[in-house]
Every structure is written in C-alpha cells, then in structure tokens.
Design a protein around this nucleic acid. Sequence first.
RNA 1: GCCCCCAUCGUCUAGUGGCCUAGGACGCUGGCCUCUCACGCCGGAAACAGGGGUUCGAGUCCCCUUGGGGGCGCCA
Length: 488
Amino acid sequence: MVVVCPRSAYLFLQNLDTMTVVTRFAPSPTGFLHIGGARTALFNWLFARHHGGKFLLRIEDTDRARSTDDAVDAIYDGLKWLGLNWDEDAISQFSRVERHREVVETLLAQGNAYRCYCTREELAQMREQAQAEGRKWQYDGRWRDRDPSEAPPGVDPVVRLKAPRDGETVIFDHVQGEVRVANDQLDDMVLMRDDGTPTYMLAVVVDDHDMDITHIIRGDDHLTNAFRQAQIFLAMGWHIPEFAHIPLIHGPDGAKMSKRHGALGVDAYRDQGFLPEAMRNYLLRLGWAYGDEEVISTEQAIEWFSLENIGRSAARFDFAKLTHLNGLYIRSADDAYLVETIRPLMEKSRNEALNEGQIALLVRAMSGLKERAKDIQELADSAMFFVSPRPLSYTEKAMNLLDEDGLTHLRRLRDEFSALGDWKSDRIETHIREYADAGDPPIKLGKVAQPLRAALSGSTVSPPIFEVMALLGKEETLGRMDDALGTH
RNA sequence: GCCCCCAUCGUCUAGUGGCCUAGGACGCUGGCCUCUCACGCCGGAAACAGGGGUUCGAGUCCCCUUGGGGGCGCCA
C-alpha cells in the first residue's frame, strides 16, 4: 500500500490566487518566543499576507504541566513587537479537548485506531531491550488486533492509530521536495493518553483541519511528524494541507540553537536595541533570498515572498549582520519615532522624565545622532548629553582634551561667541574656521573642535560639533564652556 | 543504531547544464573623505567538501564517501 499525500487535489482545480490561504503559527507555551519560532511565524505571516489570506495563532498547550500563562504572554508580546499581527483570536489547543476526543472515538469506531493496554513499565522495558539488542525501538502493535476482553484489569488504555504497515508514505514538501518513508518505519502512535487527553500528534491534525489550514509552514524538525500526521488525515478522510518544512536556525557556533545554547527570546533582542523592522529583514534573509536583494522592506517582502525561494539548508545566526542591518534601519528611521523608541531607555538611565522641550530638542538632534548608532541603546546613550543638566561630567578622554591648549582656545572662543549674533551652524563653523586659520601658525581645526566637543558633550564623540552648538543654543553652549573653564 | 534532510567565500546567500575568469551582503582588510565617531565611496584577500559517473560541456543531473542537522516519548 502506498499512502500518497499529493499536492492538494483541489489545488489543481483552483489556484492560489483564488483560494483563501490560511496559515498558522502554533508554538507551545513552554518558554519565550525564540528566534527560530519568530522566523517560522514571519514566514507564515508573509505567506498569508502575500496571498491575501489569513494568519492564525494557535497555542499548543495540551501539555498542562509545562504550559504557563507567562509563556503565552511572552509569545503574544514577541509577535506584537515583531509586528506579526494574527487574524482572529488565538486558539488554545487545550480548549478543544472535547473535539479531539470525539475524533478519537470516530477513529476507534471506524477501526482505524485501537486501545492499547501496555503499561508504561512494559513499554519502558521493551524500549530498553530494543536498545540493548541494538535495534530501533518501535512499538510492536501487540494490541492491534487483540480482543479488548483480554485487557488486564486496572490498566487505563491509550488509544493508538492503526497505521499502515506496508508500503510507504510520501509527501510533497514545498521546501524539501518529495520525501518518502517506508511505513514500517512508523509505528502505531499514541493518539490519546491513558488519562484521556489527546496527544499533540492528534490535536494538530484535528485543529489544522478544523481551522481550514491550507499551508503548514514549520521547522523541519517536524518533517517526520508530517508522515504520521498525514496518516491521521487520511484515516479521517480529510484533505491534507500543503507542507513546507523550513530548515532550522543554528547558533553562531553551528550547533543547534537551543535555550542553553545562546538562543534568546525576541524580547532579549528588543532589549539589546534591535528594531523590529531590522529583525524582520534579517530573519527573512536567513534561509530565504530574492536574488541579490539584501535590504527588503516589509511591503516588498510581502510582495516577493514565496515558498519556492526558501533554502534547504540550516543557517547560522550572525549577530554582526543583524547589527549592520539594524544600523541601516536606524539611519533611515523617522526622527520622532526614534526619539519615542529611546525615550524609555533615557528616562530610565537618567531616572527622570524628559520634558517637551527636551523631546523636541532630541527630535532635532536625531538626524545627526542616528547616523552613528548601531542599536537603540547606543543611540540613547549618545543622545544623553543633549539633555544632561549642567555641569556635565566628562569622560577621561574628554578630560585630556581640556588641557592647557584646549582651554586657551575655549576661553578665546567663548568671548568671541558672546559677540556672535547669528547662532547658526554654518555661521559658527565659519567663525571657528576663521579663528583656526588666523592662528600663527594656523591651528588645525581638530585642535579647536575636540576641546569644544569635550566641553559641550562631555566626551570625544558626538555629531558634528557646529551642529551640536546650534542645537544646544547659544546660552547653553556658553554655559557649558564656562563650566569647562571654571572646573579647570 | 535505524529513518529522513542538508552541503557555494569565516557567515548569510545568488546560481535551476553553456551568460561562472563563480555574483551580492556581513565580517576582515588597503585607501579616500574628515572637526571626533560613524556613514559614504574606491580597491583587496576569501568558496563550488572529496571521489566516481552522465554530457560536446557540471557549482548546476545521478551514485558513493565524508561532514553537518533533525527524528525515533502516553513533549510539542
């Protein structure tokens, strides 16, 4: 017997443009939303949006012992931060147990499933023995055709699928292509536990069917599950969704991205200063490509996304590239948006709220600031001096610039500045250049600009100093210069 | 162990038998720009895992080896 899961029969009748594509992201709430899950969600979201279909969210919480509400919230937060909005309400898989049981009953009644009275101990023993003999462990189906009247007393049975034993099962995966496995490699999986709760394998199939999922896009660690799930779909006589098993993401060292191996929740990336749009772009390019395109807006991603362009090999996570992309997005981001983004970080580190005037100043300063930041934490730090109260504290390097020579220039310039009427960046620059040129011998601009930078920003790095002076305003500039002169 | 998947610069990738003296990006690196730091610009080093086929012709197709990954739960 050959069980074939073809590219959906109805796909030949109606094409993707006219059918409603429905995808889903189905994480289990046992921890944060990690990077691999985020990419899976992104791909599902893009595919649905590309086809004008629906992207649903289902929380796979049938394992009551390991599911937590905090984890569910972390998943919601992560998806929201990434901008991956889902359609309709999220579905709790656990809330559907009655329906799952109903399907198990149907399978039982049809003779496609049976009760197995093996105890866990018995199973453990069989597994051990198989291992000792170097055999592959597989449930031998001993209760497959046994009469239930032989059931030992006091044992709550599990329900297993009566899976085909001969032939093979083949699926056509949109990423992996045609994959086939001999049915004798697949044993009779448990559909319902001895406590009457459905297993993941059963629940996924029932839910995907009931939710009218057309395309299952998920990590390729589920590839072998696809065969087992296909058998359930077939047993129920249900239409089988399209599959697309995407390669996993590995850590920078090539090892599996796991929680103890550098895998972080998306919240950690947010906290490290990455912009969601940069994250989306990076994740998209990890395993998917559109020619030589590197910087891809979300609109473009939706337009270009297709399953066929997904690569087949695992990718390593590269912080450097993410960081570079993040810098790109920061530079092209809206000034007010960036100020809003760094605002909480700044208020936290200065332990004081920013007032309206300060916000406005930061918005005006942003074009110079964002040019030199790779992440928003850095951006927040670099913006700090604009709103720091006098007198500023200086970094050690800044101190060194405020030496005798530096202070001499500051002193002279300070007097000249107070006479300067038009406090505009280019006017200030002209003035200082003239001052430097007038020296005998002429002074290098840096000799003047750096002490100014130190006095005005407290550090050795800042946006163009003439711009900073204009932004700060004449009064504040002179005040900060006085501070520097007074302290030394 | 068994089953399945994968394999182009350090990393992400383009490449669908001739357009490949293998392209782009990150990183690295030489230079330019320059008031600092960045950005930007110009240049450089850097890859088809190995071996067999198929073909007039292979990075592209097939097989084997090697290497990586995943799965083999009353977890999801």
